[in-house]
Design a protein around this nucleic acid. Structure first.
Lengths: 193, 193
DNA sequence: CAGTTAGGACTGACTGGTCGGTACTAATTC
DNA sequence: GAATTAGTACCGACCAGTCAGTCCTAACTG
């Protein structure tokens, strides 16, 4: 059911990630998904609505498929979880022939200045992402995985900021190195003395 | 002389920073600068050419007015230079009622995937920026300002990645906190044991 | 000095094309 | 019979970019 709707969502998701929201036209989405324009506007009242739905889906999927399975994986040590998380991010970006950047970071920069709906959703998601990292850091400080002389919330914020910046560098330099080298350095800096 | 040309450059620089390159139309630049379209194309052969010129100007200005005066200020200690640099970045972003993000980071995310001219210029600039940070870190490791158990180039890369990510967060959360808190944490992590 | 030439700065009207979105009819599917 | 898909023509706004031609000043020429 809703075959067209799903095809629109799948095509738009890829196009938004590759070219950005504003730089993707509705016509391109129709062409890629093989759906007619009237059918598009039967399912979505506007391009913005589509964008917000895709963003929400991506957030939900990322939380359940990546964040919970790595940072929330209680069968690993806290530092092992963080390493697993970095690995999953690297895998995600290495699988694209040309780095496209972080879907969330790209959208944040593109939309935060011009659309409050996108900005608020992204701001809330970054906060929740940060909380998940913080939980892992906090536990790692108890177990002695990580140095305990810094507030875990502040460390989590630093990790997320650095991650987004590193992915930006990966996209700009067309090399995974800033992410792999940066994540290793983060791990070293967090090691207990 | 060239009053129109300078007005176009000044207006476009602001608009590109606030809305991005692609989201700023030539007509908007004309409206803001009060210049006619034909005059615009008398001075610039395309919107892309204008964008590259503005980017180059911004890079040159930033290197001479910010990077050299902070990270290259030999009258300060290496760690004092880094603090000064962070202060200048914070001042830059606090002076805008709404955070617009880093002009270079914004452009990198927006253009790296679709325009090689922009991507290469930005990639080269990030490398040169990194080198300036590295020089400061390297000296600080000699003086004992910073811990010496990490390669300075890797640390510099981490600092720049984190900075760009933190500015992205400032823009998304509409709060300076990720940058001020993050920079303090970086300083603490780099302190010699 | 008068007449000509050159060239940079500038103009308004215009082009072909794309944008997101609408209107409306008709067929197909569950 | 209600939800979905298809088709297609259309809209006004906007897009980057072009054009022939004017204005003004300064240098050259007789």
């Amino acid at each position: 059911m809703n075959k067209s709707k799903e095809r629109i969502l799948a095509s738009a998701k890829e196009l938004f990630h590759e070219y950005g929201f504003q730089q993707t036209s509705v016509d391109e989405i129709l062409k890629k998904s093989g759906v007619t324009k009237s059918n598009f506007y039967y399912h979505f009242k506007s391009k913005e609505e589509l964008g917000l739905i895709i963003l929400q889906r991506f957030i939900t999927l990322y939380e359940s498929d990546v964040l919970i399975k790595t940072l929330g994986n209680k069968s690993l040590s806290p530092s092992g979880r963080l390493v697993e998380f970095y690995n999953s991010v690297k895998t995600f970006h290495i699988n694209l022939e040309n780095p496209r950047g972080c879907p969330f970071g790209n959208m944040a920069i593109e939309m935060s200045g011009s659309n409050e709906n996108f900005r608020e959703k992204l701001s809330a998601f970054f906060n929740s992402w940060e909380k998940i990292i913080e939980e892992c850091i906090n536990e790692g400080m108890s177990t002695g995985d990580f140095r305990g002389d810094l507030p875990p919330g502040v460390v989590a914020q630093l990790i997320l900021s650095h991650l987004e910046g590193a992915i930006m560098m990966v996209k700009t330099h067309r090399s995974l190195e800033p992410l792999s080298s940066g994540s290793e350095t983060i791990m070293r800096l967090l090691k207990a003395a």
